[in-house]
């Protein structure tokens, strides 16, 4: 009986310690998703990798702070920021008016367009008329899902927790096409799984700026981030990171 009580106390203490990790002042906690290659993904050792992560590290170096990464599922990523689980989101997030109601954004760190990916040689047309009655896959809570919902009203929209699951289902033939960020689709089409698939039609240029989200009250942080983005653009760090992932400039 006594050992039982002791182990309960021990576990209780364990749980409390887990929550009370102290934060030093010069740490910037960054939220990212980790399921969005090549921008952010988790490697075999459980660490975050990708374009977003490299950019975030470069920005932290520039701002002379220490980056601490927190992984968070996409549909909870803004609530997580508002709940102060982390101070900034570097996760390929589009700057949209809807999101601006909840958070503030830095200047862009790359630009994005939306584009369909579909089986090679499909007869589909990437128009509302051409996709009528077809099934479109997209990730939940993304600009792609929002765009598909508004512009392709005659199609069935399937939303996924992660972009990876949307690709799995396109590969399985459960959806006719996936609407996604062009660069993410580009990455997938270059994997072995994507070899029988191709871009469908042109990109939709929706004037989409990918930026870092912070809480509205953290105005200083926005200024610092903007200065740091300008600095890494100017000193060639950005170009180096860009070249690691894409053979063209994505700014």
């Amino acid at each position: 009986m006594k050992t039982w009580i002791r182990s309960v106390l021990f576990l209780g203490a364990l749980a409390v310690c887990g929550s009370g990790a102290a934060q030093a002042k010069d740490v910037l906690r960054i939220g990212s998703e980790g399921a969005y290659p090549p921008f952010n993904m988790i490697d075999k050792d459980g660490n975050l990798q990708g374009f977003d992560i490299d950019i975030a590290k470069a920005l932290c170096d520039e701002m002379k702070v220490e980056c601490k990464f927190v992984t968070q599922d996409w549909d909870g990523i803004i609530p997580g920021l508002l709940a102060k689980k982390y101070d900034a989101i570097v996760a390929s997030m589009s700057d949209t008016p809807e999101r601006r109601k909840a958070v503030a954004f830095s200047n862009k760190y790359y630009s994005n367009m939306l584009r369909f990916a579909a089986p090679k040689g499909t007869a589909l047309k990437p128009t509302a008329e051409g996709m009528k009655g077809k099934t479109i896959g997209a990730q939940r809570a993304t600009i792609a899902a929002q765009y598909a919902k508004e512009k392709f009203k005659g199609s069935e929209l399937k939303v996924y927790d992660t972009q990876e699951n949307a690709w799995l289902d396109l590969g399985a033939g459960r959806t006719d096409a996936v609407l996604a960020d062009m660069l993410v689709a580009y990455e997938w089409l270059n994997t072995p799984e994507g070899q029988n698939y191709a871009f469908l039609g042109d990109s939709f240029d929706i004037d989409d700026h990918i930026a870092i989200a912070v809480r509205k009250q953290d105005k200083d942080l926005v200024k610092k981030l903007n200065a740091a983005i300008d600095a890494i653009r100017a000193n060639g760090t950005y170009a180096k990171i860009n070249a690691k992932y894409f053979p063209f400039d994505i700014y």
Partner: peptide, 17 residues
């Protein structure tokens, strides 16, 4: 991907937080 009660709630929250 099904929009049952929880799925619907998650989709709506994705729009308005």
């Amino acid at each position: 991907t099904l929009l049952d009660i929880t799925g619907m709630a998650r989709s709506i929250i994705a729009e308005n937080y």
